[in-house]
Design a protein around this nucleic acid. Structure first.
Lengths: 206, 206
DNA sequence: TAGATTGTTAATCGATTAACAATC
DNA sequence: TAGATTGTTAATCGATTAACAATC
């Protein structure tokens, strides 16, 4: 009985991306060999990763629409998750304007900023509210996910406010390790650090 | 003889971030136990990760300034890496405006866009040039790193142009798997996918 | 000195790869 | 049918954890 492990789940968004792409091109099936090549991994690994879905057909490959659907189910990409974003600077605006989130079930319902000039602006479908409204709206809408897009100095305070308002998962773009209760999930998006890795590999490869 | 593995190197930027933070607070030393707690990993693992640096002192912990310096050396954070960015939309602008890259040795030397309205703008220290200038400038400055911050449709074409101009490493923010020669390094920043993982964990945890 | 903390060895765990029978 | 491709078992590999001697 094939099962999902953490390592597998982490690769599902990547398969999803490729499958959607192939789907757009009108492809109906894809082999583990092909997926493996695009991702630079072994085809056995692909088969193990996708075995739980039971969408593979011998001699033909994986049925793309069925596999897409299965991944959407297991990752919960259909039930839209509403999030609040704090910090409507350029990064916050980039996130608000990014249409790709919709495909992954994320909707940024509202943004917040202390800067009065930013309040009232609308980027994409998202409106910027004054920070003073944060707590009231978060509680009323029972929001669970928060996006921290403020500066380093403000991040911890914003995170505390989110926890206070009942948030359960935080997506942190500030270059800080937030101190939070153990039951709060955090994903740190350390862009600069990720870049540093690329630079490291570049130097090694020469 | 302690050595660096890929897994270790991937965690170095995280240690770096914490060490810099502690350094700012005036701390001189830190124990593996403390670092482990912040990162949510085992203290043995921290000791293994940092053993190659030989900056640990029994009974006292790791000497912060020395460890910071060692990490900077091995990740090449001192020798600044110049990069060109293509796509001066909100994401591109966010990256240009982000001051945190400097700390990791990344300098976005110039940005490029086909949109005439964006050309000439300056975000942070980075100026936006017309795409027609890309090839000439890239070759003249011998740029090796490119940041792809354009839309899905344009990404492959931009990547091809970068490879053509002699780029060796690409940081791709477009939700596409680029087809590139094997010797070109790519780092895909799949933000939406990363978010999906957080949503997955949130659902499991309830 | 006694206690704390490192570096390292050995044990465990989990993830990846290899191989192949099943089968469409 | 023959060939291609899956799902799965066994083998390998690498990373994490446990344990502890060394020592400041």
């Amino acid at each position: 009985m094939p099962q999902l492990t953490i390592a597998k789940v982490a690769r599902l968004p990547e398969y999803y991306q490729i499958l959607k792409m192939l789907s757009k091109k009108g492809r109906e099936h894809v082999s583990s060999e092909h997926l493996a090549e695009v991702l630079g991994i072994d085809s056995s690994l692909v088969r193990k990763d996708l075995a739980w879905a039971y969408t593979g057909v011998q001699k033909v490959g994986y049925h793309i629409p069925a596999t897409v659907k299965k991944i959407e189910e297991v990752l919960g990409l259909n039930n839209t998750k509403d999030a609040f974003l704090v910090g409507a600077g350029s990064l916050g605006q980039a996130l608000m304007g990014y249409t790709g989130f919709r495909e992954y079930g994320l909707s940024i319902l509202a943004a917040f900023d202390i800067d009065q000039e930013k309040v009232g602006q609308k980027i994409g479908d998202t409106k910027v509210f004054p920070m003073s409204e944060f707590d009231r709206l978060a509680r009323r809408l029972n929001i669970q996910m928060g996006i921290v897009a403020v500066t380093e100095d403000a991040a911890q305070q914003v995170a505390d406010q989110m926890v206070e308002a009942g948030f359960k998962a935080l997506w942190n773009f500030a270059p800080v390790f937030l101190k939070l209760p153990d039951d709060i999930l955090v994903r740190n998006e350390n862009l600069a650090g990720g870049f540093a890795m690329l630079g490291y590999e570049l130097e090694r490869s020469v």
